[in-house]
């Protein structure tokens, strides 16, 4: 237990270090970008200098970074928006984070559900048509870009089925509210989750095939356990260990994919904000979103490593 705590501590230090490096790197990059947030306002000369001074943009970059950092640590503030001048970023970004988290969470559930189910089915029926069908779906899953799946979803649910059923089945688009209804969430979440489910199917299948050949499975069968119990209780639990190892990359894939999906469906989340902030030269928002993503990925990876110990008690830190 003490070892685990020390391990978590070390990991947290590494996360903090990574977040610091990443945020400084991004801070540095966005301030090197040509143009500034006030270009569209056609402010020039002295007026521009006054504006830059007001937002502290005339100071050297390290000084600006230090101010930004102390702002977070002391006030929990990520600064103010430069595009919508003076708007505090923190509440805005946190609201968008909750929207993205809802979408990403739904996609994660779909990904793991689909991936593990398909993987187990394919392994149990190895070399049958079920296996071939499911593995083919898996390869298609991680080859077809998520925006293609999303477009297909819009085409099928938003148009074809809508016309066919005279509007009974209708996929509304774009999102109207902040959080969206369950129906509005469905197509984006599936489009987002389908891509990563392919990799999970693949790994689950390979791991299940590995486990099923082992002696304790034969023992379980020999003592007369029903197939379902053998597969779900005995085999799946051990097969989940390698599956857990790609949960970290899966979360990163979903975060990356959400940027594209949110822009297609007009979902007011972090990914949409990121792209807009780049186009609007809204530096503080860009840096803020980046920092949140870095924290998110660090925590997700740590969480995955801790899930290991739950699934496989042999693993200790």
């Amino acid at each position: 237990m003490r070892g685990t705590l020390i391990y978590i501590g070390q990991r947290l230090v590494l996360i903090v270090f990574t977040v610091l490096v990443v945020s400084f790197g991004v801070f540095f990059i966005v301030h090197l970008l040509p143009g500034n947030a006030f270009v569209s306002d056609r402010v020039h000369g002295q007026a521009l200098q006054i504006l830059l001074h007001e937002y502290g943009l005339d100071q050297p970059i390290p000084v600006q970074y230090w101010n930004w950092l102390t702002g977070i640590v002391l006030h929990g503030s990520l600064g103010v928006s430069l595009y919508i001048r003076g708007l505090p970023i923190t509440p805005l970004v946190l609201r968008e984070l909750s929207v993205s988290a809802m979408l990403g969470g739904a996609a994660l559930i779909i990904t793991i559900g689909l991936g593990v189910t398909f993987g187990v089915l394919a392994a149990v029926r190895q070399n049958s048509w079920v296996d071939y069908l499911l593995t083919t779906i898996a390869v298609i899953g991680y080859s077809v870009p998520s925006f293609v799946i999303a477009s297909l979803g819009i085409l099928i649910f938003g148009q074809w089925l809508n016309n066919l059923t005279n509007g009974v089945i209708y996929y509304p688009e774009p999102w109207t509210g902040t959080y969206g209804t369950l129906a509005e969430l469905s197509v984006p979440a599936i489009a987002l989750g389908f891509y990563t489910s392919g990799q999970i199917t693949r790994i689950t299948r390979a791991a299940m095939l590995d486990v099923i050949q082992q002696d304790y499975i034969r023992t379980a069968r020999a003592k007369g356990l029903v197939d379902r119990v053998v597969v779900l209780r005995h085999a799946l639990r051990n097969a989940l260990v390698p599956v857990t190892s790609i949960l970290g990359p899966t979360v990163i894939s979903i975060i990356v994919g959400s940027v594209v999906i949110e822009n297609i469906f007009g979902i007011p989340g972090l990914g949409k904000e990121f792209v807009e902030s780049i186009f609007q030269h809204d530096y503080n928002v860009t840096v803020g979103v980046f920092t949140i993503y870095a924290v998110l990925i660090g925590v997700a990876n740590l969480g995955v490593d801790l899930i290991y110990t739950v699934i496989d008690p042999r693993i200790r830190y």
């Binding site: 590494l14 990574t18 990163i252 979103v289 980046f290 993503y293 870095a294 990925i297």
Partner: peptide
């Protein structure tokens, strides 16, 4: 590890 800590697409955009 630091490069693994950021979403690749966003770095590419930046």
């Amino acid at each position: 590890n630091i490069f693994y800590g950021v979403p690749p697409l966003l770095v590419a955009v930046a």
